[in-house]
């Protein structure tokens, strides 16, 4: 006699298997959603690298040197900005065995104008590959701009020293 009760065991086996496999699939897919939390680590590495480079560019190589390389380049204003970016990136790319070539940067400068307003200008020319959606980090450095003439910094009172903020957006292309 054909007893269809036998079907039940097979059906339940299939049901249990489907439940377990589905769970495993869901679990694996959810944990992989959480891993982008790791992107904070590359950010942290990039930020550390950027602030190291700015700090080192702001350190004179000799005691006799009055102005650090960073101050010289900031005084050069907008034309100096591209040189600043190139030198900044050269320092960032340096590593043992082959340069780390896919780094990009954009340099901004914030200073106070003669009338006291805070003004931010772009020092380096725009990067054609920059869309604004990149995962960028921002590193900054206070620069002590001594008295005297600067180039291309609009409305800056050159009769007094300034504290200006160099900001660099750094990202991986």
């Amino acid at each position: 006699m054909v007893n269809d009760a036998g079907q039940l065991y097979t059906m339940e086996g299939v049901a249990a298997g489907v439940i377990m496999l589905l769970t495993a699939y869901i679990v694996i897919s959810t944990t992989s959603v959480y891993t982008p939390g790791d992107t904070h680590i590359p950010d942290m590495q990039l930020e550390q690298l950027g602030s190291d480079v700015l700090a080192m560019m702001d350190t004179p190589d000799n005691r006799e040197e009055e102005e650090s390389r960073l101050v010289v380049l900031v005084k050069g204003g907008v034309p100096g900005g591209d040189t600043l970016r190139t030198e900044f990136l050269n320092n960032c790319k340096m590593r043992a065995g082959g340069d780390d070539d896919d780094l990009r940067a954009q340099v901004y400068l914030t200073y106070r104008k003669m009338n006291g307003d805070v003004s931010t200008i772009q020092l380096s020319s725009s990067d054609p590959g920059f869309t604004g959606r990149e995962n960028t980090v921002r590193v900054t450095r206070w620069v002590h701009l001594p008295r005297g003439s600067t180039y291309g910094l609009d409305n800056l009172d050159s009769s007094r020293p300034h504290a200006v903020l160099v900001e660099v957006l750094l990202w991986r292309a």
């Binding site: 059906m11 086996g13 249990a16 298997g17 489907v18 377990m20 769970t23």
Partner: peptide, 13 residues
């Protein structure tokens, strides 16, 4: 009688 198989599956899940 076969319900326990489904129960096992649930436990594993």
């Amino acid at each position: 009688d076969g319900q326990w198989i489904v129960l096992m599956g649930l436990l594993t899940a």
